[in-house]
Computed example of a mutant assay.
Amino acid sequence: MKLSRAALLLSTLVFIGALIWVAVTAGDQVPAHFDGSGQVDRMDSKLSFLLTMGGTGFVMIGLFASVGWWLPKVPAQMVNLPSRRLHEYWTSAENRPELNRKMSEDLDWIGVATALLFAWICVVAGTTTDASVSVWVFVVPTVLYVVAILGYAAFVFMGSRYRVPKD
């Protein structure tokens, strides 16, 4: 099993664990939304929270996890790459399987970060008993998520991962 796929599986299990933990330990009402200062501004039933978070999380994780299945079915002309040269190289019949593998792996890693962020949100909502939390409880993980995704995207697009080999 590829490391990226194992990490996606592990992060999905962490997310499932967070949902189960909320289901077992949270009260009947769970904070469903926090404003910019960390104040709870909407409460939902535990069931509604779990269905919303679980549904959204599993759709997102499913999208990331299924790239290896659906990307090979996407016609070459619909694959968007930064330059014509890259597009011609990576969508050619001999290079397309490698492109599919690399993109699937890259999206696995983005799925890992997303699943962990969703798990964190579940934990925060499940442990909040006051009418507010420190704004940093959301700011730090969200900023780390965005920086990690942007950093990974820069690494992928500016680095050598998709560079056309020299002739």
Rank of each mutant, 00 (worst) to 15 (best):
L19W: 00
L50D: 05
Y145P: 04
G62N: 08
V156Y: 09
G55R: 03
L51S: 13
W120D: 03
I110V: 15
P97R: 06
F138R: 03
S83D: 08
P75C: 05
N95A: 13
E105H: 13
A26D: 06
S45E: 04
M60R: 10
P82W: 10
S45T: 14
F34H: 01
A119W: 00
T114E: 06
T114G: 13
W21N: 01
D41V: 11
L51N: 07
L19I: 01
R101I: 01
T25W: 10
M103C: 11
S48D: 14
G38V: 10
E88L: 12
A119L: 09
S134G: 03
D35H: 04
V143D: 03
A113W: 06
Y89W: 09
T52K: 13
T56D: 04
G55D: 09
S37Y: 13
F118I: 08
V133S: 02
I61R: 01
K73N: 12
A65S: 12
L116M: 08
T52F: 07
N80K: 14
T128Y: 07
K102L: 14
G111V: 00
A115F: 02
M103A: 15
L63K: 08
W90R: 12
K73Q: 08
V137A: 12
G111I: 00
S132W: 09
G55T: 04
E94T: 15
V137F: 07
A119D: 03
G151M: 10
G17P: 02
L99P: 00
L117G: 07
A113T: 10
S48T: 15
S104G: 11
E105L: 10
F118Q: 04
P141A: 09
K46Q: 08
F49C: 07
S83Y: 09
I61E: 05
A65D: 12
V22T: 06
A153K: 00
L63R: 02
D41G: 12
G27R: 03
G36N: 09
V67K: 01
L116W: 03
T91K: 05
R96P: 06
L63V: 15
I61Q: 06
I110D: 11
W120A: 06
P82V: 05
L81F: 12
F64P: 00
G151W: 09
Q77C: 06
L50P: 04
G68N: 03
T52N: 14
F49Y: 12
Q29P: 02
V40P: 03
F157C: 10
S92W: 06
L71H: 05
P75D: 13
G62C: 06
I16L: 14
G54V: 01
V67P: 04
A23I: 02
Q29S: 13
V137P: 00
A23K: 03
G126W: 01
